[in-house]
């Protein structure tokens, strides 16, 4: 039996490309001081967001971003048929607790920082497959919830190294619909878990870059497209170090998309914000997509985007046990057609 909507090894082709009918983004104060402040719908004044803990704040961010994306279409949470969301916390509590409040049927996802692409590609499959008319896909991260889970207590006086990244406080949500107007999701490439034996938790870009390069290479092989086809190829959160590595790997694979290649982790902050190699976290690619990138697609500045969110699939436990850091990347093609 041949899969009708699959092309090549790992790429999905949407017969009726779902519309991205609406989107919303929310960011923390630091991200709000970055170069894209005007593109985000909501900039939080502080990291607690009038909640009692950072975890509660992150969940509220996700919930409010989902509600905001729907309200832009004059819809309420009950009008959405499915919520696909994920975050970085143990047992993805930010997403589950947000889903509890909005009471939309919910499937929780974990793809580390690749979650925005993962939710988008699964949502597109479900809409194109005819299972749902309207699906909300979302992802979030919060600097302080991630810091305390993956690194050190936040007030601990440790020195960061130049290859380390700053987990973004951000959330993005997209409304996918079978009918409507807007950019459409045309192709998606599901990535493999790639592990090149990197063990440095302060250099996640290096752990994820091979996965990004592999997925992008496979996307071009499967679709027969060339890097120039896209106005922009953007990875999720490789940061400056990972982006440089990905560039080297592209050359090695015979791909040279460097003129139109960038990374959300590099774009999100400007150089003076003390983020070392760049931003990271599910929200990093989430807010960049549901903010500046989709705004540019809507205005026609970008007509063909390949969005490749990247994730490092480790946990503090696996790191302490000496495991290397596996990376993953999923690619989603978003086009004005």
């Amino acid at each position: 039996m041949v899969a009708l909507k699959k092309m090549g090894l790992q790429t999905l082709v949407f017969a009726e490309p779902p519309y991205i009918a609406s989107w919303a983004s929310m960011v923390g104060p630091k991200e709000g001081e970055g170069p894209w402040a005007k593109d985000f719908d909501w900039i939080m004044e502080d990291y607690l967001f009038a909640e009692a803990s950072w975890e509660k704040a992150e969940s509220k961010m996700l919930r409010e971003t989902v509600k905001l994306a729907l309200s832009k279409m004059k819809l309420e949470p009950k009008d959405a048929e499915l919520l696909l969301a994920g975050d970085l916390l143990n047992q993805i509590i930010s997403s589950s607790f947000a889903a509890r409040e909005v009471s939309i049927p919910f499937l929780g996802l974990y793809g580390a920082c690749s979650t925005m692409a993962e939710s988008l590609l699964i949502g597109s499959m479900l809409v194109d497959g005819g299972f749902f008319e309207r699906v909300v896909t979302a992802a979030s991260s919060h600097h302080y919830t991630a810091e305390r889970q993956f690194r050190f207590p936040t007030e601990q006086g440790v020195q960061k190294v130049p290859s380390s990244q700053w987990t973004a406080t951000a959330a993005g949500a997209l409304v996918l619909q079978k009918a409507g107007v807007g950019p459409r999701v045309t192709y998606a490439t599901v990535g493999k878990v790639i592990d090149m034996g990197q063990t440095d938790a302060a250099n996640m870009g290096a752990a994820m870059a091979p996965a990004a390069a592999d997925t992008i290479k496979t996307h071009f092989q499967d679709t027969g497209r060339v890097p120039d086809y896209y106005d922009l190829i953007v990875t999720g959160d490789l940061g400056a170090v990972g982006m440089a590595l990905a560039g080297e790997l592209f050359v090695k694979e015979g791909l040279v998309p460097s003129p139109n290649y960038s990374d959300c982790g590099v774009l999100l902050y400007d150089g003076l914000q003390g983020v070392d190699s760049g931003g990271s976290g599910c929200g990093c690619s989430g807010c960049m997509l549901a903010g500046p990138l989709l705004r540019k697609i809507k205005s026609g500045e970008i007509n063909r985007l390949l969005f490749v969110a990247t994730g490092a699939l480790m946990s503090p436990t696996s790191s302490f046990q000496g495991e290397s850091i596996p990376g993953i990347a999923h690619a989603v093609a978003i086009e004005n057609i």
Partner: peptide, 13 residues
């Protein structure tokens, strides 16, 4: 790859 990473990784000051 490890050698490539070491070449590209910025050194701490």
């Amino acid at each position: 790859y490890h050698n490539l990473v070491n070449r590209i990784k910025p050194k701490p000051p």
